[in-house]
Amino acid sequence: MTTIAHVEPVSKGTTGASFKKKGVGSALTTIATWIIGLIFIAPVFFMILTSFHPEVKASLNTPQLFAPLTLDGYKQFFGSSSGQSPWPFVLNSVLCSVISTLLVLCFAIPAAYALSVKPVRKWTDVMFFFLSTKFLPAAAGLVPLFLIAKAVGGLNQIWFMIILYTAMNLPIAVWMMRSFLADIPPALFEAASLDGAGLIKTLLKVIAPIAGPGIASTSLICFIFSWNELFLVNVLTSTSAAQTLPAFLPSLVTSQALFLGKLCAAATAVSLPVLIAGFAAQDKLVQGLSLGAVK
């Protein structure tokens, strides 16, 4: 004789209430996320909007959102009326950021490959050593850096700033690249070794295509850190021969007046390369930063 178990029917009211609660909670989370995002983006939006306002309207204590729009701030910043041309500082920023980022990748990828693929004893101690270099505040090492720069002739020299930016970004790049390379199956490296591929060929033909998103995200972060760095370049340089754009911006604030429109235009122009790079590589950045998050 077959016994049929009795199954209690699920109450439609309970199920509907559960779905309703989840829907309300999801809606509240979405609204809160949008509010937080707008709070963070509001100062940036106000800076960009003020850069297009005439100086008379931009300097008012009560901001006027619907003031007439003009390009005078950008013309004054890039033109001869700004007092000092910003183009030497733009060139220095590009050289320091691009060259230091390329050097960081040249050093970080082989180091991460050795720490993630090759058997290295006490690799955790090595990674902690890299991380410990970021514990010391930049101000604490300023006097030794200044004395070293003075001894080797690195004051007001762009090559010394490139070396500093490379050393500054190398620890975080090694940490990031190791987490990316650790997710690559070891069988790929074994297959490349059996095919007779050396280290350089393995890095170029095997690692680079697979770890492309990780390399892109690491490059973007190192570029941003180098582009925005102000403390070291403000102390170790004093002329346009080596100063970068972040060190040029404070010179727009003079004792005569605060030209807010021109200053906002300059800040927007300085931020534009980072924003363009971020938007161009946003898919690679998200994909790279999510590598290793799910095992």
Rank of each mutant, 00 (worst) to 15 (best):
L258Y: 12
L131S: 03
T62L: 13
G214Y: 04
M161A: 07
C106P: 03
A167T: 03
P9K: 13
A32K: 05
V233L: 15
E8V: 11
L275P: 02
A242C: 07
I158D: 01
L65A: 08
F189G: 00
T133F: 09
T14N: 07
T50Q: 02
L285D: 00
D125L: 15
T218W: 00
V174F: 03
K134L: 15
S85P: 07
A293L: 10
Q157P: 04
M127E: 06
D183T: 14
F45V: 14
T50W: 00
F248W: 12
P88L: 07
T15L: 11
S217K: 02
A257W: 07
W34V: 14
E229T: 05
L102K: 05
N156P: 06
L145T: 08
A293E: 07
V143Q: 06
D72M: 10
G83F: 10
P86V: 09
V270W: 00
D125W: 15
F45T: 11
A267P: 01
A140Q: 04
G13L: 08
H6F: 11
V98C: 05
L289E: 06
L69P: 04
K284I: 09
C222K: 03
S81W: 09
S97A: 15
M161S: 04
L245H: 03
Y113P: 03
F128C: 10
F160G: 02
K118N: 10
T244L: 07
I215V: 13
L164C: 10
F259V: 13
L105P: 01
N92I: 00
A139R: 09
W123F: 08
I39Q: 08
I4Q: 11
A293H: 07
T268I: 02
I221K: 02
L260Y: 08
L252D: 01
G13W: 02
K150A: 14
F180R: 06
L204K: 12
L28Q: 05
P171W: 01
T14A: 13
Q84F: 13
T50H: 02
S80Q: 14
A208L: 14
C222R: 00
Y74L: 05
F128H: 10
V253P: 00
F89L: 11
Q282S: 13
I148V: 13
M177I: 05
P110Q: 09
T202V: 08
S255L: 10
T202F: 04
N61P: 13
Q84L: 15
P110C: 10
S226T: 07
L285K: 01
P171I: 02
V56N: 14
C96A: 15
T124A: 12
L285W: 08
Q256K: 10
K22T: 10
A67H: 05
A277G: 08
L69D: 05
S132L: 11
S82A: 14
I41Y: 11
V274S: 13
G278S: 09
F189E: 00
S251N: 12
A42T: 14
A114K: 01
S271Q: 04
V286T: 14
T237L: 06
Q287C: 08
K21L: 12
D283Q: 14
A277P: 01
V24E: 07
S85A: 12
S85V: 09
M168R: 07
L147I: 13
P171L: 00
D195R: 03
L194F: 08
Q243W: 09
M47N: 03
Y165H: 15
E190Y: 02
D125V: 15
F189S: 03
A108T: 03
S97P: 07
F248D: 00
T62C: 05
